[in-house]
């Protein structure tokens, strides 16, 4: 069983919701990323989304754009990121890891080469932001053949017909984008999210995880009431951005942001 499925089935038995932090690999510099990942697990992360830095992150707001710029400036490449996962796996064999990013870097090293490497270092899922299911004919089967989950986004504006297609292709979990816009945007309405999740429940048994606009324990807890998982990115990356000059303090800060959410969600 894929680690993602394993984790969600455990959570379901415990009656808990998944807490899924996102950080951009290589931000503020590659040598810190693995330490951050362990810190996130210590603070209660159930799944880690590791961002692949990219020069044109079209779906991301300024916070993650800048994180990508910092990581790229430090020379972080996709192959480095795969090595980070391998290093993380030396001491953590259970926490699922999802790579999240854009298609260009993957295409650059080749779909098959990437899928082989990702599977061999212990990646569990791949979310390619700019590869909707219609464009996944070639890459999707390569992931599937290696037991890697292809994770897709659903937006508030996604039509019923498209949502059905996405549910049919999706694996691991569905990433529901809570609001119109880009990552790190301001407000999230939990009632609105609940309304949009209801029809998805009828279409799929996949866990429904919600991202975009979750900034603190309060919003995390609200979303956890209606979803199977809570994805938090910009709120963490903001802490990294604020402390680029004192990188040794970042792991502690990430822990405290995430621990507050964990406590609020489990309360």
């Amino acid at each position: 069983m894929n680690r993602i499925d394993q984790r969600f089935s455990e959570l379901k038995q415990q009656g808990r919701k998944a807490l899924i932090p996102y950080i951009t690999a290589g931000d503020p510099a590659p040598q810190y990323t693995v330490g951050f990942m362990h810190a996130l697990v210590d603070a209660g992360a159930d799944v880690i989304e590791l961002g692949v830095p990219f020069s044109d992150p079209m779906a991301d707001g300024p916070v993650i754009q800048k994180a990508c710029e910092r990581a790229l400036k430090q020379g972080t490449r996709l192959v480095d990121l795969l090595e980070m996962v391998a290093e993380f796996r030396q001491t953590d064999t259970t926490t699922p890891i999802v790579l999240m990013g854009y298609l260009n870097p993957i295409e650059r090293i080749g779909y098959e080469v990437f899928a082989d490497k990702a599977a061999s270092v212990g990646v569990d899922g791949v979310l390619v932001v700019d590869m909707p299911p219609e464009e996944a004919d070639e890459f999707g089967p390569l992931l599937k053949a290696r037991g890697l989950a292809a994770i897709f986004l659903v937006a508030p504006t996604t039509s019923h017909a498209r949502a059905a297609t996405i549910c049919a292709h999706g694996e691991g979990y569905l990433y529901y984008v809570s609001l119109k816009g880009v990552t790190g945007a301001a407000t999230l309405n939990a009632e609105d999210v609940a309304e949009h999740l209801a029809p998805l429940r009828d279409m799929t048994d996949l866990p429904l995880c919600v991202g975009f606009g979750i900034r603190d324990g309060v919003t995390a807890a609200e979303v956890a009431k209606v979803a199977d998982g809570v994805i938090v990115g910009s709120a963490l990356v903001n802490r990294i951005a604020d402390s680029v000059d004192a990188p040794e303090t970042i792991a502690g800060q990430l822990k405290s942001v995430l621990a507050e959410m964990r406590t609020a969600m489990d309360a």
């Binding site: 079209m58 779906a59 909707p132 464009e135 659903v154 504006t157 498209r162 119109k180 816009g181």
Partner: peptide, 14 residues
């Protein structure tokens, strides 16, 4: 060609 974009854009393009 094609439509290699985030799902957030799919509605606008459709």
């Amino acid at each position: 060609g094609g439509r290699f974009v985030s799902e957030t854009l799919s509605f606008a393009l459709e």
